[in-house]
Protein backbone atom coordinates (compact mmCIF):
# COMPACT_ATOMS: atom_id res chain seq x y z
CA UNK A 1 0.00 0.00 0.00
CA UNK A 2 1.10 3.52 -0.78
CA UNK A 3 2.23 5.17 2.49
CA UNK A 4 0.00 7.94 3.82
CA UNK A 5 1.54 11.35 3.26
CA UNK A 6 1.02 13.00 6.60
CA UNK A 7 3.79 15.29 7.60
CA UNK A 8 3.45 18.11 10.08
CA UNK A 9 4.87 20.54 7.51
CA UNK A 10 2.33 19.75 4.84
CA UNK A 11 -0.90 19.18 6.78
CA UNK A 12 -3.22 22.03 7.71
CA UNK A 13 -3.08 22.82 11.43
CA UNK A 14 -6.77 22.06 11.90
CA UNK A 15 -6.24 18.57 10.53
CA UNK A 16 -3.22 17.90 12.74
CA UNK A 17 -5.17 19.16 15.72
CA UNK A 18 -7.91 16.69 14.86
CA UNK A 19 -5.42 13.80 14.64
CA UNK A 20 -4.12 14.62 18.12
CA UNK A 21 -7.52 15.29 19.60
CA UNK A 22 -9.16 12.06 18.43
CA UNK A 23 -8.26 9.00 20.49
CA UNK A 24 -8.25 5.40 19.31
CA UNK A 25 -11.37 4.72 21.38
CA UNK A 26 -13.26 7.45 19.44
CA UNK A 27 -12.46 5.80 16.15
CA UNK A 28 -12.31 2.00 16.72
CA UNK A 29 -15.07 -0.47 15.88
CA UNK A 30 -16.40 -1.62 19.25
CA UNK A 31 -18.42 -4.67 18.19
CA UNK A 32 -15.37 -6.89 18.23
CA UNK A 33 -15.60 -10.21 16.36
CA UNK A 34 -13.24 -12.76 18.01
CA UNK A 35 -12.39 -16.44 17.70
CA UNK A 36 -10.84 -19.02 20.07
CA UNK A 37 -7.46 -20.69 19.43
CA UNK A 38 -9.05 -24.13 19.23
CA UNK A 39 -11.62 -23.13 16.57
CA UNK A 40 -10.89 -24.51 13.08
CA UNK A 41 -9.99 -22.53 10.01
CA UNK A 42 -13.35 -23.66 8.62
CA UNK A 43 -15.04 -21.96 11.62
CA UNK A 44 -13.02 -18.87 10.81
CA UNK A 45 -14.20 -18.93 7.18
CA UNK A 46 -17.85 -19.09 8.29
CA UNK A 47 -17.33 -16.31 10.84
CA UNK A 48 -15.70 -14.04 8.27
CA UNK A 49 -18.52 -14.66 5.81
CA UNK A 50 -21.23 -14.08 8.40
CA UNK A 51 -19.74 -10.98 10.00
CA UNK A 52 -18.17 -9.60 6.81
CA UNK A 53 -14.73 -9.05 8.36
CA UNK A 54 -11.30 -9.79 6.91
CA UNK A 55 -9.32 -10.08 10.14
CA UNK A 56 -10.25 -11.61 13.50
CA UNK A 57 -8.43 -11.26 16.84
CA UNK A 58 -7.89 -14.56 18.59
CA UNK A 59 -9.23 -14.03 22.12
CA UNK A 60 -9.89 -16.24 25.11
CA UNK A 61 -10.84 -15.04 28.61
CA UNK A 62 -10.32 -11.40 27.62
CA UNK A 63 -6.76 -12.15 26.57
CA UNK A 64 -5.41 -11.54 23.10
CA UNK A 65 -3.42 -14.46 21.66
CA UNK A 66 -2.95 -13.25 18.12
CA UNK A 67 -4.76 -12.22 14.98
CA UNK A 68 -5.86 -14.28 12.01
CA UNK A 69 -6.63 -12.73 8.65
CA UNK A 70 -8.03 -13.59 5.26
CA UNK A 71 -4.47 -14.15 3.98
CA UNK A 72 -4.03 -16.92 6.59
CA UNK A 73 -7.32 -18.44 5.46
CA UNK A 74 -6.06 -18.55 1.85
CA UNK A 75 -2.95 -20.38 3.07
CA UNK A 76 -5.10 -22.97 4.88
CA UNK A 77 -7.22 -23.43 1.74
CA UNK A 78 -4.14 -23.90 -0.45
CA UNK A 79 -2.69 -26.46 1.96
CA UNK A 80 -6.10 -28.10 2.30
CA UNK A 81 -5.92 -27.73 6.10
CA UNK A 82 -9.29 -26.20 6.86
CA UNK A 83 -9.76 -28.47 9.88
CA UNK A 84 -6.56 -27.27 11.54
CA UNK A 85 -6.94 -25.04 14.63
CA UNK A 86 -6.70 -21.27 14.21
CA UNK A 87 -3.67 -21.28 16.54
CA UNK A 88 -1.59 -22.89 13.77
CA UNK A 89 -2.21 -20.11 11.24
CA UNK A 90 -2.63 -16.98 13.40
CA UNK A 91 0.06 -14.33 13.75
CA UNK A 92 0.85 -14.76 17.46
CA UNK A 93 2.53 -11.40 18.01
CA UNK A 94 -0.16 -9.04 16.82
CA UNK A 95 0.77 -5.36 16.88
CA UNK A 96 -1.76 -3.70 19.15
CA UNK A 97 -2.66 -0.13 20.02
CA UNK A 98 -3.95 1.31 23.28
CA UNK A 99 -7.37 2.89 23.40
CA UNK A 100 -5.96 6.16 24.77
CA UNK A 101 -3.45 6.67 21.96
CA UNK A 102 -4.01 9.67 19.75
CA UNK A 103 -5.08 8.85 16.22
CA UNK A 104 -1.90 10.41 14.83
CA UNK A 105 0.20 7.54 16.25
CA UNK A 106 -2.10 4.90 14.79
CA UNK A 107 -1.90 6.58 11.40
CA UNK A 108 1.88 6.26 11.58
CA UNK A 109 1.45 2.54 12.44
CA UNK A 110 -0.31 2.00 9.12
CA UNK A 111 2.85 3.27 7.41
CA UNK A 112 5.27 1.49 9.75
CA UNK A 113 3.66 -1.98 9.62
CA UNK A 114 2.16 -3.78 6.72
CA UNK A 115 -1.06 -4.66 8.60
CA UNK A 116 -4.52 -3.42 7.72
CA UNK A 117 -5.98 -3.67 11.20
CA UNK A 118 -4.80 -3.31 14.79
CA UNK A 119 -6.58 -4.81 17.81
CA UNK A 120 -7.19 -2.21 20.53
CA UNK A 121 -6.37 -2.97 24.18
CA UNK A 122 -7.56 -1.14 27.28
CA UNK A 123 -5.38 -0.33 30.31
CA UNK A 124 -5.80 -3.91 31.61
CA UNK A 125 -4.58 -5.31 28.26
CA UNK A 126 -8.05 -6.62 27.39
CA UNK A 127 -9.10 -6.40 23.74
CA UNK A 128 -11.92 -3.81 23.44
CA UNK A 129 -12.06 -3.03 19.72
CA UNK A 130 -10.32 -3.03 16.40
CA UNK A 131 -9.10 -0.19 14.25
CA UNK A 132 -9.04 -0.32 10.46
CA UNK A 133 -8.50 2.17 7.65
CA UNK A 134 -12.25 2.14 7.14
CA UNK A 135 -13.09 3.09 10.73
CA UNK A 136 -10.53 5.90 10.56
CA UNK A 137 -11.87 7.15 7.24
CA UNK A 138 -15.48 7.33 8.31
CA UNK A 139 -14.69 9.05 11.61
CA UNK A 140 -12.28 11.53 10.03
CA UNK A 141 -14.78 12.39 7.32
CA UNK A 142 -17.45 13.01 9.94
CA UNK A 143 -15.13 15.29 11.93
CA UNK A 144 -13.99 17.09 8.78
CA UNK A 145 -17.59 17.72 7.69
CA UNK A 146 -18.37 19.17 11.10
CA UNK A 147 -15.28 21.36 11.00
CA UNK A 148 -15.96 22.52 7.44
CA UNK A 149 -19.53 23.44 8.35
CA UNK A 150 -18.19 25.51 11.24
CA UNK A 151 -15.65 27.28 9.01
CA UNK A 152 -18.23 27.84 6.29
CA UNK A 153 -20.42 29.66 8.79
CA UNK A 154 -17.59 32.01 9.72
CA UNK A 155 -16.26 32.53 6.26
CA UNK A 156 -16.23 36.08 4.99
CA UNK A 157 -15.00 36.87 1.52
CA UNK A 158 -12.65 39.82 1.79
CA UNK A 159 -13.83 42.78 -0.23
CA UNK A 160 -10.96 44.07 -2.31
CA UNK A 161 -11.11 46.95 -4.73
CA UNK A 162 -11.99 44.73 -7.67
CA UNK A 163 -14.44 42.47 -5.90
CA UNK A 164 -17.91 42.42 -7.35
CA UNK A 165 -19.37 39.99 -4.83
CA UNK A 166 -19.79 40.44 -1.08
CA UNK A 167 -20.70 37.52 1.11
CA UNK A 168 -21.12 37.22 4.86
CA UNK A 169 -22.83 34.88 7.28
CA UNK A 170 -24.01 36.02 10.70
CA UNK A 171 -24.79 33.64 13.56
CA UNK A 172 -28.03 34.63 15.32
CA UNK A 173 -28.57 33.31 18.85
CA UNK A 174 -31.89 32.25 20.25
CA UNK A 175 -33.67 35.00 22.25
CA UNK A 176 -30.69 37.35 21.96
CA UNK A 177 -32.55 40.65 21.76
CA UNK A 178 -29.48 42.69 22.68
CA UNK A 179 -27.80 41.74 19.41
CA UNK A 180 -30.78 41.12 17.14
CA UNK A 181 -30.69 43.72 14.39
CA UNK A 182 -26.92 44.18 14.38
CA UNK A 183 -26.49 42.04 11.26
CA UNK A 184 -29.16 44.03 9.42
CA UNK A 185 -27.51 47.30 10.39
CA UNK A 186 -24.21 46.05 8.98
CA UNK A 187 -25.90 44.79 5.81
CA UNK A 188 -27.48 48.21 5.34
CA UNK A 189 -24.09 49.92 5.71
CA UNK A 190 -22.46 47.58 3.19
CA UNK A 191 -25.20 48.28 0.65
CA UNK A 192 -24.81 52.02 1.18
CA UNK A 193 -21.05 51.71 0.61
CA UNK A 194 -21.74 49.78 -2.59
CA UNK A 195 -23.82 52.69 -3.85
CA UNK A 196 -27.13 50.79 -3.98
CA UNK A 197 -30.26 52.94 -4.43
CA UNK A 198 -31.85 54.05 -1.14
CA UNK A 199 -35.21 52.41 -1.95
CA UNK A 200 -33.55 49.05 -2.60
CA UNK A 201 -31.46 49.34 0.58
CA UNK A 202 -34.66 49.91 2.51
CA UNK A 203 -36.34 46.80 1.05
CA UNK A 204 -33.29 44.59 1.69
CA UNK A 205 -32.85 45.98 5.21
CA UNK A 206 -36.51 45.31 6.04
CA UNK A 207 -36.30 41.68 4.85
CA UNK A 208 -32.97 41.14 6.65
CA UNK A 209 -34.32 42.65 9.85
CA UNK A 210 -37.59 40.71 9.80
CA UNK A 211 -35.71 37.45 9.20
CA UNK A 212 -33.12 38.29 11.84
CA UNK A 213 -35.80 39.04 14.41
CA UNK A 214 -37.56 35.80 13.44
CA UNK A 215 -34.36 33.81 14.05
CA UNK A 216 -33.99 35.37 17.51
CA UNK A 217 -37.68 34.99 18.39
CA UNK A 218 -38.70 31.65 16.89
CA UNK A 219 -35.66 29.51 16.10
CA UNK A 220 -33.24 27.61 18.29
CA UNK A 221 -30.57 29.81 16.69
CA UNK A 222 -29.41 29.95 13.11
CA UNK A 223 -27.61 31.93 10.45
CA UNK A 224 -28.38 34.92 8.30
CA UNK A 225 -26.38 35.00 5.10
CA UNK A 226 -26.07 38.09 2.98
CA UNK A 227 -24.77 38.07 -0.55
CA UNK A 228 -24.48 41.04 -2.85
CA UNK A 229 -23.61 40.57 -6.51
CA UNK A 230 -23.64 43.11 -9.30
CA UNK A 231 -27.09 42.11 -10.45
CA UNK A 232 -28.77 40.80 -7.33
CA UNK A 233 -28.84 40.70 -3.55
CA UNK A 234 -29.78 37.66 -1.49
CA UNK A 235 -30.69 37.24 2.14
CA UNK A 236 -30.84 33.64 3.34
CA UNK A 237 -32.03 32.65 6.79
CA UNK A 238 -31.33 29.11 8.00
CA UNK A 239 -32.02 27.50 11.32
CA UNK A 240 -31.83 24.05 12.85
CA UNK A 241 -35.23 24.05 14.44
CA UNK A 242 -37.86 23.76 15.63
CA UNK A 243 -39.42 24.19 12.17
CA UNK A 244 -42.84 25.49 11.17
CA UNK A 245 -45.81 23.13 11.39
CA UNK A 246 -47.84 24.90 8.69
CA UNK A 247 -45.92 27.23 6.37
CA UNK A 248 -49.02 28.58 4.61
CA UNK A 249 -50.40 29.60 8.01
CA UNK A 250 -47.09 31.26 8.95
CA UNK A 251 -47.24 33.28 5.71
CA UNK A 252 -50.70 34.60 6.63
CA UNK A 253 -50.70 38.18 7.90
CA UNK A 254 -51.47 38.44 11.58
CA UNK A 255 -50.86 34.78 12.38
CA UNK A 256 -48.34 34.47 15.21
CA UNK A 257 -46.94 32.05 17.76
CA UNK A 258 -44.98 34.78 19.57
CA UNK A 259 -45.29 35.08 23.33
CA UNK A 260 -46.17 38.22 25.33
CA UNK A 261 -42.53 38.96 26.00
CA UNK A 262 -41.80 39.21 22.29
CA UNK A 263 -44.89 41.36 21.79
CA UNK A 264 -43.65 43.73 24.49
CA UNK A 265 -40.57 44.25 22.33
CA UNK A 266 -42.79 45.56 19.55
CA UNK A 267 -42.79 42.38 17.49
CA UNK A 268 -44.77 39.19 17.13
CA UNK A 269 -47.65 40.76 15.22
CA UNK A 270 -47.50 37.95 12.67
CA UNK A 271 -46.23 40.26 9.96
CA UNK A 272 -42.57 39.25 9.74
CA UNK A 273 -42.65 36.63 6.97
CA UNK A 274 -45.42 38.33 4.93
CA UNK A 275 -43.51 41.61 5.13
CA UNK A 276 -40.20 40.03 4.08
CA UNK A 277 -42.07 38.49 1.13
CA UNK A 278 -43.72 41.83 0.30
CA UNK A 279 -40.42 43.70 -0.07
CA UNK A 280 -38.55 40.93 -1.95
CA UNK A 281 -38.60 40.28 -5.69
CA UNK A 282 -38.48 36.56 -5.04
CA UNK A 283 -39.24 34.73 -1.84
CA UNK A 284 -38.87 31.06 -0.96
CA UNK A 285 -39.58 29.31 2.31
CA UNK A 286 -39.12 25.66 3.18
CA UNK A 287 -39.66 24.20 6.62
CA UNK A 288 -40.07 20.88 8.38
CA UNK A 289 -40.91 20.25 12.02
CA UNK A 290 -37.90 18.96 13.92
CA UNK A 291 -35.57 19.88 11.05
CA UNK A 292 -35.60 23.63 10.58
CA UNK A 293 -36.54 26.48 8.30
CA UNK A 294 -34.81 27.99 5.27
CA UNK A 295 -35.92 31.32 3.86
CA UNK A 296 -34.46 33.05 0.82
CA UNK A 297 -35.31 36.61 -0.22
CA UNK A 298 -33.92 37.83 -3.55
CA UNK A 299 -33.69 41.35 -4.86
CA UNK A 300 -32.95 41.96 -8.51
CA UNK A 301 -30.85 45.03 -9.17
CA UNK A 302 -31.54 47.10 -12.27
CA UNK A 303 -28.86 46.68 -14.92
CA UNK A 304 -26.51 49.61 -14.99
CA UNK A 305 -27.01 51.42 -18.29
CA UNK A 306 -23.58 52.26 -19.70
CA UNK A 307 -23.38 55.96 -20.33
CA UNK A 308 -21.57 56.85 -23.54
CA UNK A 309 -18.64 59.22 -23.28
CA UNK A 310 -19.81 62.80 -23.95
CA UNK A 311 -17.34 63.29 -26.81
CA UNK A 312 -18.78 60.42 -28.87
CA UNK A 313 -21.33 61.44 -31.50
CA UNK A 314 -24.73 59.87 -30.82
CA UNK A 315 -24.62 57.87 -34.07
CA UNK A 316 -21.51 56.00 -32.90
CA UNK A 317 -23.33 54.52 -29.92
CA UNK A 318 -24.67 51.07 -30.73
CA UNK A 319 -28.43 51.01 -30.66
CA UNK A 320 -28.71 54.79 -30.40
Amino acid sequence: MEPLQLTAEQSPLLFLELLYKLRVRDVMAKDLVTIARSATMRDLKRLMQERKVSGVPVVENKRLYGIVSIEDLIQALEKNRMNAPVSEFMAPNAVTVEENMPLSIVMSYFNKYDYRRFPVLNASNEPVGIITARSINSRLLMELFRELARIENQYVLPVDDNATCYFKTYRIQKADFDNAGKASTEIKNVLRDRGIAAKTIRRVAIAAYELEINLAVHSDGGTLTFRADEDEIQIVSKDQGPGIADVSLAMKEGWTTANEWVKAMGFGAGMGLPNAKRVADEFHIASALGVGTNVTARFILPKAVPTPPASLPAAAVPGA
Partner: peptide, 17 residues
Protein backbone atom coordinates in the same frame (compact mmCIF):
# COMPACT_ATOMS: atom_id res chain seq x y z
CA UNK B 1 -42.79 58.58 17.24
CA UNK B 2 -43.11 55.75 19.72
CA UNK B 3 -43.52 55.01 23.40
CA UNK B 4 -41.55 51.78 23.01
CA UNK B 5 -38.16 52.28 24.64
CA UNK B 6 -35.76 49.65 23.35
CA UNK B 7 -32.78 49.17 21.06
CA UNK B 8 -35.21 47.60 18.63
CA UNK B 9 -37.15 50.87 18.18
CA UNK B 10 -33.88 52.49 17.08
CA UNK B 11 -32.92 49.55 14.86
CA UNK B 12 -36.36 49.63 13.27
CA UNK B 13 -35.99 53.39 12.72
CA UNK B 14 -32.66 52.69 11.04
CA UNK B 15 -34.08 49.98 8.80
CA UNK B 16 -36.93 52.17 7.52
CA UNK B 17 -34.54 55.08 7.01
Amino acid sequence: LSSLVSDQSLRTANVVG
